[in-house]
Each structure stands twice: as C-alpha cells, then as structure tokens.
Design a protein around this nucleic acid. Structure first.
Length: 470
DNA sequence: GGCCGATTGCA
DNA sequence: GCAATCGGC
C-alpha cells in the first residue's frame, strides 16, 4: 500500500507539492522515467539533459535522507509510460500516484494515458499545481477567454496575489526506510553528449546551489535589477532560468525570496521588474494551454503563416555559428553554444535579426535555441520567438524592429560583452567594435552578411503585404 | 521592449 | 541650430 511520486520537471524536495502530498498520504517511492527518444523529438539540448541528470543525482541523495528511494525506469518514448507504470505499480504495491502538472500537448496526452492505465487497475492519479502560481484556465478575461495581452494578464495576476501569496511548503518529514534500494542515476543517456566541464561549472546542480543563487540574487542584485538587466556584460540578471525550468526551484520560492529581500514591498526598485519576468513565464504557459497550436509549429497569428520566409541555409548557418559579421549577434550566439544560455536582451536581438533582417522562419530559430539552451522551455521559448517574429500573442509590432548596431551601442557601450566572446575583436576600442569595417576588421572576422537598411525595408514590406487580419 | 522624420521649444 | 518630444509605420 504505497504512494508513488512521479518526478518530471520538479527536481526538488522542498516546496514540492506532489512529494508533500504523497508523503502525507503514506509510505512513498519516487520514480523518474528517462525517455531519450521523446527528448530527441522535443529537441531537448544535451546540456539540459546532463543538467537534469546531475540534479537527479543530488535529488536522489535528498530523497534518501527522507527515506524515499528513487527508482529509475527508462522508456524510449512516453507512449511506453503506461505499460511501465502497470508493471511498476504491480511490483511495488502502489495505490496512488502523484504528479505535478506539466502543460505541453504531449505531456497532457501522456498523463491522460497513464491515468487511464492506472484507473483500469484501481489506482488513482493525483495531479498538483506546482510549477505555476495560477492554474491555466483559472485566469481569464472578462469574456472568458485566455489572455492574449501580457499587461492585462499581469494585472489579473497582481490582483490575485495581493494579500494572498501562495505559501512555500517546507521539507516533508522523513519516513521510515521502506527497505527498497533506489536505483543509481545514470551519468549520461545515450545520444546526449556530455557538455564540457566549463559549462557544467556555470550551472551547479542541486537545490542547495539553486537556493544559494536565488538568495545571492535577491539580496545583492535585485535592487539594481531594473537597470542592470539590460547590460549583458553585467551580472544583472538572476540566471535562475535553468533551475526554474527543471523545477529545482519553484516560482513560490522565487516570489518569497524576492519579497523577503524587499521587506515585503512589491514596489521596491527591481522587485516588480523581476516579478514581471516570473509572470511572463506564467503567461506563456497559460498561452500554450489556451492556444495549443502555438506549440504545434503554428503561428499564433494565422495571417503571418503567409510570410515569404527565405530559404537561406548559409545565412542560417552563419547565424547559428556566430559568423554574421554583427559583433553583438555573433557574441550572443557564441555565448549560447559555449554556456547553454543567452542573456535575455540578446535573445531578442538575435531573434529579431534572424526573423526580420534575414527574414528566416522563426521556427528555425526556435529549434536551434531548444537544441542548445540549458533552460529550454517550450512555452517560454516559443512565446519569445513568436514575440520577436511578430507572429504571436502580444507580439512586438512588426515595424518595431531592433537595429542590431543601435542595440550594441546602447547595451554593450564599451564592447565588454563582445570582447568576452569574440577574442578576434579584442584589439578594437569602444567606437569601432560594434561594426568593424575596412582595415579595422580582423582577417578572421566576416563582413556583415546583410545590409541593415535594405533588410529592414525588406522585412517591413513583407509584413505590409500580408492580408489584414480578420 | 523602436525607429525615423517632422515638429516644437528654446537659445 | 540643436535637443527633446511626438506620431505614424
């Protein structure tokens, strides 16, 4: 008569609602299902899979201290999950399974299939709201539809949160050892190459490391966040996204840490700007549930499907590898390859460059990001790309396209970020580094692959030619 | 969450 | 003549 917690993107023991509920209900086992075929189909990055496994190793120790053995059962794809559950639940005398909800189309289908299989055996599946502050569908416009504009969504969230913050749950009390040995967490999964140690060191695994980072940020950087976050050479952002995406941190922990550091004052400088970012994360997951077509390769704005995206494999490759001849774009793309992460402003800059200046389909960029980001999250990544491409909910108006040189001069004025990632430009001063031309351009650095005024007009014309929505 | 060109206000 | 501001795209 045991409980089972099925761990997915909730790799922590603190403030884990499904774990807490399972352990409150009775003796508990934990399960993780590596599913490499599914991960490949989702373009999950090798560094992200490695991050999951490293966190899972830490988690298995924390679970062991709670008396909870972690079982590992590999399946190739999620359609094998129901059968794996049927076997395991028989073997281990499971009466109830607990999960924290996940929101993709495949995830929902998987959970429904597992639920049906369990039900046939008389076993319940308990779902918990955990990775979001608000359940999708619980925040709607007056018309009863999912929000399509962030500002309105944010207002609704803030009204709900005022004086009614979701609580952070502590650590569940340890249970007696059930006398079952946990499985060893694999060090790697076939098909996902181990990232270099230099990348791993940037993203230490485990709840302790995540909590240290959260509190260091909340106490030392949050106050300056609103100003510092736009400058990629500064340590201005929290760099917590990989931990949130893997569920090593909960949004409730983030919310409380920020408010605690601000003495409970939502209006303290930096606090509301950072909480907005938590709400963007929330917004795009709600959009994914409300408009599932966005996760199925479709633009949110149907009329933008008619855009004449260019088939330009060499320009796409230059963008991917950081060889566009635009230093800020190239530095950002190399940061992604080397560290599995990119500063948020630069995600907008490179996305706008690909979709507008090169007029290459946002889906190519979305896929490249997923294949390389350690924080890759379907909802946030898709939302960000469709925002940049002006095809999405609350997307940037198409005529508001960034000028990569202006962005470079504004947000990396001294060229420090560029120099960090493009050593070939080390010798250039702050005037010349943003657009090295003529004799100033080192032999190893490419000339710009596209002309800005021309490509800007080309993009504007393509959008103007679209039939009006309606 | 831009950009650009026109206009305005001030010297 | 210049910088700040504004409105259309």
């Amino acid at each position: 008569m045991r409980q089972l917690i099925w761990l997915r993107s909730d790799l922590r023991v603190h403030d884990n609602r499904a774990l807490g509920a399972a352990m409150a209900a009775g003796p508990t086992l934990a399960l993780y299902l590596p599913s490499p075929g599914q991960w490949r189909a989702h373009d999950d990055a090798a560094c992200k899979v490695d991050f999951w496994l490293r966190n899972l190793t830490e988690l298995s120790h924390s679970l062991a201290r709670l008396g909870v053995p972690l079982l590992i059962r590999q399946v190739e794809r999620w359609d094998e999950a129901p059968a794996a559950f049927a076997r395991l639940c028989r073997e281990q005398d499971i009466v109830q399974v607990h999960v924290n909800d996940e929101y993709g189309v495949h995830e929902s289908r998987r959970d429904a299939a597992v639920e049906a299989e369990l039900k046939a055996q008389g076993i319940g599946l308990q779902r918990h709201l955990d990775q979001l502050l608000f359940a999708p569908g619980s925040l709607l416009t007056r018309a009863g539809t999912c929000f399509q504009v962030f500002g309105q969504f944010r207002r609704a969230c803030q009204q709900r949160l005022a004086g009614n913050l979701p609580a952070v749950a502590g650590l569940p009390a340890a249970q007696p050892q059930p006398g079952i040995a946990g499985d060893a967490v694999p060090a790697a999964v076939e098909g996902f190459a181990a990232p270099p140690e230099s990348l791993r060191r940037l993203w230490p695994a485990g709840e302790e490391a995540a909590q240290r980072r959260l509190h260091e940020f909340a106490e030392n950087r949050l106050a300056a966040y609103a100003e510092a976050r736009d400058f990629p050479a500064e340590p201005g952002t929290s760099r917590l996204s990989p931990y949130l995406a893997a569920g090593v941190l909960s949004p409730r922990q983030c919310l409380h840490a920020a408010l605690q550091a601000a003495g409970g004052d939502f209006d303290r400088p930096g606090v509301s700007a950072w909480l907005d970012e938590l709400l963007w994360r929330e917004f795009y997951k709600h959009v994914l549930v409300g408009y599932p077509r966005v996760s199925m390769g479709r633009a949110f704005l149907a009329e933008t499907e008619a855009l004449p995206w260019r088939d330009a494999p060499e320009e796409l490759a230059a963008w991917q590898q950081g060889r566009t001849g635009f230093p800020l774009v190239d530095a950002a793309m190399r940061q992604l390859l080397a560290s599995g992460w990119m500063h948020n402003r630069l995600r907008m800059v490179v996305a706008m460059f690909l979709t507008k200046n090169l007029l290459i389909d946002w889906r190519h960029g979305e896929r490249w990001f997923m294949r390389h980001l350690i924080d890759g999250d379907l909802a946030a990544n898709n939302g960000g790309w469709q925002w940049s491409a002006s095809t999405g909910t609350d997307a940037v108006p198409y005529f508001r396209l960034f000028n990569p040189l202006a962005q470079s001069r504004k947000f990396d004025p001294d060229g420090r970020f560029i120099r960090q990632w493009l050593p070939e430009l080390e010798g250039l001063d702050r005037r010349d580094i943003h657009a090295p031309a003529g004799l100033l351009r080192p032999a190893g650095y490419p000339p710009p692959i596209v002309e800005l005024p021309f490509s800007r007009e080309r993009a504007l014309a393509a959008f103007k030619a679209l039939p009006r929505r309606g």
